[in-house]
Design a protein around this nucleic acid. Structure first.
Lengths: 212, 212
DNA sequence: TAGATTGTTAATCGATTAACAATC
DNA sequence: TAGATTGTTAATCGATTAACAATC
């Protein structure tokens, strides 16, 4: 919509961060903030803050700064879906359980509507008030409930099988904790990867080679 | 050590990915791979693969490609610590439990030596064969066992309190799942952030604004 | 030899930072 | 008015991609 096309991925990844700090400042009763102050809090530059906020539509005022309430409203309006996004979780292991809990109790803009697993011991179990469903019932579930996001908390090999099926079910958005590679997929499929292993290995690399 | 200073953060984040694919190819019995083939698998460019692999010290051979076994050896040698890095986990909630499990059973190059929490119900409980310890015993534990990495699976407010204490205990490396901001900290402190919330919010932004 | 593919330099692209006129 | 701070353009920086001689 309108000029959002301008917003690049690096900027998008910074917006939630800004929102966190804006919320923090608001809860402290702060009414306005300058790009310099915010940059200092975040450990970035005032230039970057201004460049980024500019995309939000000129909320700032010369000599004054940015009004917290407007920043918050604008950021929330941009980030959160108007109607919560219905999502399903695939994989009810320990990570899946943690993520289910997060989606249910913390995440804004999402609505967890089902949890699936393929193992006998998991199916039927309770997770956060959800009964874990058999993966075989997935397509039927999707026809009835039309989830828009799938959260992948399964091993990569399982994701390999699941993803084509999920896409067949009409799901185009993925929050991916597996290492399944969406690279060569359709352009209209959106994926946010959380690659825990790669993060941990980057850390050991940096420790070993003293890179900050 | 030697020419590793050259390796930039973006490259470091790609190395674990290369290693995954190299392992995959090896398990399929493949003996050599060209930059073009690997690029296709990963969804990147042959140029980037060659640039990156060049930093590993010229393993490739013109007209042939890169030998899988040497690639694997070199990548592993770079990424994993010679001696596993002793680490402690702070926060035994559902995410902490999942991460403990991962560190114990999956992660290479790390050795989980203790789990801490501040809540009465958690302390004394068993997680993956570890008995959850009281956070008050942290500094004593650190004096005795000298962990080198702390994994933060606590809320941001708890991290705010904990981090200075952990640093006082001599810990300089952090795998951070909280939103505590290390920005203005000492230069010799290394942090890898896994910001789940920000990833999820970036996804909803992209869905809302149709950005791929 | 001819074909393939590297290593590496050069060109391009995009993101970050700096600068400064506009203006509150 | 003077000081502060924005919005925005220009400069810089770094990362990615392209090109090609070297060589297996």
């Amino acid at each position: 919509m309108d000029k959002n096309n301008k917003v690049s991925i690096p900027v998008i990844r910074r917006l939630p961060r800004y929102l966190r700090y804006v919320n923090m400042l608001e809860s402290e009763g702060v009414k306005k903030v300058s790009s310099r102050e915010l940059a200092e809090l975040l450990g970035t530059t005032a230039s970057q803050v201004r460049q980024d906020f500019n995309l939000l539509g000129g909320l700032g005022r010369q000599g004054i700064g940015y009004p917290i309430d407007e920043l918050k409203r604008e950021l929330e309006q941009r980030i959160y879906a108007e109607t919560p996004l219905d999502c399903i979780l695939i994989g009810a292991g320990s990570l899946g359980s943690a993520i289910a809990r997060y989606l249910k109790n913390v995440a804004k803009g999402y609505n967890l509507i089902g949890i699936f697993d393929n193992s006998e011991e998991k199916v039927g179990a309770k997770l956060e008030e959800y009964t874990c469903l058999n993966i075989d019932t997935l397509s039927e579930f999707c026809i009835n409930h039309n989830p828009v996001v799938a959260v992948l908390c399964v091993p990569t090999s399982a994701a390999e099988q699941m993803v084509p099926e999920l896409i067949k079910c009409g799901i185009k958005n993925f929050w991916n904790f597996s290492h399944y590679n969406f690279a060569k997929l359709n352009d209209d499929v959106k994926v946010e990867n959380v690659h825990i292993r790669e993060s941990l290995e980057a850390l050991s690399y940096r420790i070993k080679h003293e890179i900050n």
